[in-house]
Simulated scan of single mutants.
Amino acid sequence: MKQILTTGAALAALAALAACQSASPAADYSRPAPLTAAPTSPVQSSQLPPPPPPPPPVQQAAIPPAPAAPAADATPASSGAAQPAQTASAEPVKREGLVGAWKVSTGGGSCQIFMALTKWTGGYRAASRGCPGQVADVTAWDVAGGQVVLKDSGGSTVANLSSAGGQRYDGSTTGGQQISLYR
């Protein structure tokens, strides 16, 4: 009985060894041959030209003074807060119309802001690229009171912009710097 067990164990070991040896050559063929290095030319560098200057800000038309007496069908304002001024030709601001890439002119520089409809702290997700000053902190945006409001990661307002007609919005940062969004 002992001899049968020893013989069985030896045969099992030989079978396992034979299986490993027969699989070994096939494994070598399944691997790709290493690639040889290709010659490359030296890397060259040069200075890029300066970016084009930003367009001049659009001057908003003067808003006529309010009538002395309210109309009979007008409802009185419930709040003493000033409403944002808009020109008569300004179209209503819609979130869907703001999605995408925008060029920004502020503080004598230009950059880009990308706006999405993904919910984010303070409104919707935004990302600035290469912006100077406070505008570099923009991470969110929203529409409030007919204005585009740019916000930082804490939800604090960075800038308020009103429609200047077409694909342009002009306003100022909370620090008083002029800012324009345009396509």
Rank of each mutant, 00 (worst) to 15 (best):
A23P: 00
P32Q: 14
P76G: 07
V149T: 14
S45N: 10
G146Y: 03
L11N: 08
I63W: 00
T139D: 06
G109D: 14
A9V: 12
R183N: 15
S78M: 13
P50N: 05
Q44D: 10
P76W: 03
D152W: 03
G100N: 05
R183Y: 02
G146D: 04
Q178T: 08
S162D: 05
D73S: 15
R183M: 09
S24N: 10
S41H: 11
L14H: 01
A159V: 08
K2Y: 01
A101Q: 11
T75R: 10
V104R: 03
L14T: 08
S153N: 09
T139K: 09
A37H: 03
G176D: 08
A62R: 12
S78I: 15
T7W: 06
L181D: 03
T106N: 09
P49G: 04
Q134G: 11
A15N: 04
S46N: 10
E96D: 15
V138F: 05
P42Y: 03
G176K: 08
T36I: 11
S78Q: 14
A19S: 13
P52S: 12
A127M: 09
T174L: 09
C111T: 02
A16R: 09
Q177A: 15
A15L: 13
S41A: 15
V143D: 03
M1N: 11
A19R: 06
G171E: 09
G107N: 13
G80Q: 08
A13Y: 02
W102I: 02
P25I: 13
S105V: 01
A61N: 05
E96S: 14
P53C: 10
L98N: 04
T174E: 14
L181F: 12
P52Q: 04
D73N: 15
A140F: 01
A144Q: 09
V104D: 01
T121Q: 15
A81K: 09
A77P: 12
V104P: 03
G108I: 07
A140V: 07
L161F: 07
W120N: 15
A68G: 00
A26Q: 14
Q167V: 03
G171Y: 09
Q60S: 13
Q112W: 07
Y29C: 06
T40I: 04
K119N: 10
K119Y: 06
V148A: 02
T6F: 11
W120Y: 15
R125D: 15
R168A: 11
D152C: 04
L5E: 10
G100R: 01
G80D: 13
A101C: 06
A90V: 13
I113V: 14
M1I: 08
P64L: 07
G145E: 03
T139I: 02
R168S: 12
S153Y: 03
A72R: 10
L48H: 06
V158P: 01
S163V: 03
A74M: 11
S30V: 13
V149H: 00
S180D: 10
Q44R: 11
P42L: 07
D170I: 05
G165W: 02
W102Y: 05
F114D: 14
Q134Y: 00
L161N: 03
C20L: 15
